[in-house]
Simulated assay, not measured.
Amino acid sequence: MEVRVLGPFAAELNGVSVVPTAGKPRQLLALLALHSGQILPVPTLVEELWGMSPPRTAVTTLHTYVMQLRRMLMATMATGSTEAARRAKDVLTTQHGGYLLAADPELVDAHGFDRLSAAGRRAVTDGDLVTAGRCFSEALAFWRGQALVDIRCGMLLEAEQVRLEEARITTLEGRIDLELALGRPEEVLSELSVLVTRMPLHEGFCAQRMVALYRTGRQTVALDAFHRLRRNLVAELGIEPSVRLQSLYRSLLEGDPEPDSWMAGSRRRQQIFAAVPQGH
């Protein structure tokens, strides 16, 4: 079964969609898919679907949803009804007081994203920036929009949604760090301009844009970017920019030829800079 949650929800078996139209069965399938190969206990599933105050019929209704999902799976199988029912139960199994979706994690886009992001981080640690950049780019290519955008999320799915979005931003920052460290500020400026517009309080993308602008000869615009972020932070949160970002601003203001105080401010960035070939 192929499952996509990094954008509009999609799930296919044998090339046929098995996504229910009703909200709670969709929610159930999404949660099982994100934990493919793992047993999810019935109480966990009930909490996701109905929260802390489920109806008395919750467990019975959950079993009904599982049967509905199995019928959809059966419809994709070109076998007799008895054999199809058996195979559907092999895909969505009942085990030890819970349910397990026997989908290959490699066919779930969220798992592919996590795997490639982790591979990119390992490559940075090993000093292999080419592999790191490829892994980060391939990981980000899984995304087609906001994770679980068309799924009603309970507590578990909401936590997973937040985790995935934070991981996406971290991976994106890592890829842009690589481009800047390798002397390619022009290649990321347009992307960074979009990112700071969408996330006007995000210091990381603002700092990367400041560095990229400075390195392309636009010192004044880079300084203006700091002031814009500062105004947003004060107006929205009542706080000043971080010490590291203020240090970067001073470096740009003083015309530091290598304003890398921000770029070297995390372990990942230190590893990137240590691996950059001479001449970049």
Rank of each mutant, 00 (worst) to 15 (best):
A58D: 01
D256S: 08
A141H: 05
Q146T: 15
L40Y: 01
M72Q: 13
L245P: 01
T61F: 03
R218Q: 15
S242W: 02
Q246R: 15
M199P: 05
D90L: 10
V276L: 07
A58F: 09
M74S: 05
L45D: 02
G127D: 04
R4Q: 12
S137R: 11
E165C: 07
L34N: 01
M263Y: 04
M155I: 14
L252M: 06
D260M: 08
G217E: 01
T82M: 13
E186V: 11
T60I: 13
C153S: 09
A11I: 04
H111G: 07
E12G: 04
S17V: 05
R4D: 09
P257L: 04
L195N: 02
E203M: 01
M263C: 08
I176D: 05
T216N: 08
M74L: 04
V108A: 00
D109M: 03
F226Q: 05
E48G: 00
I169R: 10
R184P: 02
G120D: 02
L253S: 12
E179R: 08
E106A: 14
L49C: 02
T60E: 11
R184L: 14
I272P: 03
L233F: 07
S242N: 02
G204Q: 07
R121N: 14
D90V: 07
Q219K: 15
E236M: 11
E106T: 14
A207S: 08
